[in-house]
Amino acid sequence: MQITVLYFARLKESLKYSTEQLQLPAGVDTVAALMQHLASRGDAWQAMFSGQQAIRAAINHALVGTEAVIKAGDEVAFFPPVTGG
């Protein structure tokens, strides 16, 4: 299935990506699985998604946990803990 992935703040800078259309391999259907999939790209991706960095995720503009299920057409976003206000 195809999804849109967005990256913000430190992630966007380190990965040098702000958004991408991604075709997910079969079996990658949760936020945790997607993070593992992205970490397998190596280098900065591995550094960001292998668990050492605190990362928050949102699906279709709602904060979710890593167990959340991804569906075709979803907008999935990854970012560091927020620091507004």
């Binding site: 913000f8 949102a58 560091p80 927020v82 620091t83 507004g84 206000g85």
Partner: peptide
């Protein structure tokens, strides 16, 4: 402060840094 997706980056004489939560 904990749920709205904003991120702050500070610039100073010593360079730039993302503000930690």
């Amino acid at each position: 402060k904990t749920e709205a997706p904003f991120w702050k980056k500070e610039a100073s004489a010593s360079g730039e840094r993302w503000v930690e939560a």
